[in-house]
Amino acid sequence: MINKVLELLKEEKACQRISLPPGIKAKTSGFSLWYGSTKALKDINIEIKENKVTAIIGPSGCGKSTLLRCFNRMNDTIVSVRTEGNIWLDGYDIYDDVTDCVDIRRKVGMVFQKPNPFPFSIANNIYYGCQVNDMDVEKDEVVERCLKQAALWEEVKDRLSENALSLSGGQQQRLCIARALAIEPEVILMDEPCSALDPIATAKIEDLIHELKKDYTVVIVTHNMQQAARVSDYTAYMYLGELIEFGKTKQIFEKPREENTEKYITGRFG
């Protein structure tokens, strides 16, 4: 009897696994999402390539941010959300019942639309992720590494103990990127990271994304098509919750297969 129960438990504990083809970091298959009774994502199938930048573009309300937030299950905080289908990350199912959101989020970092540093010192902002995950690291080393990676070290090295809110908007956003790097994620999600920034700060972040893709897989949501063209290797175009077209950025912008994509890219609507 007890053995049977244990067996059942073991069975339930086992996470579904598939093997992804080489070069693919994450993949969704038949993924749909509802907010209450509204279907916000309709049967999405997309592959995120490792160490590449994937941009998701589309008009407002097309579900691009929703899709992005599915990769680290940030939609879990919304009560009425229901999902169907799978998202695979390194062959593990993100939306499996036994998957722990906390583990997922450690692997998949996120940068938000509005810079949202904690009201702590700059150093503590970066160390926070290590702290909550009980990582065995030296604080000073992590702070220096992350700030250098985020190209912010030179600007703030003399005032690490100052409140992060004293930084400018662009610096705050780079701090948020540095903060996301501190927990050593494998994928970084960026939700319109430049929409609150001026062109100079935007250029800095874009340079940074180019640097980041050497070590990380980056998925970026943007409503700025020039930006998508500049920073990404692959582009996904979404419209009304559906993935209309996905392919190499060059192909999407130069020879889109779908009429809808072409219309959007050439600015005839959206």
Partner: peptide
């Protein structure tokens, strides 16, 4: 947004409340 930021860094809900929400 601060709660989201903390959760996205792999903090649990209680860690978020304890370290990000309560101090301010």
């Amino acid at each position: 947004e601060l709660r989201d930021a903390s959760l996205a860094l792999g903090a649990t809900k209680w860690q978020t409340i304890k370290k990000v929400v309560i101090p301010p």
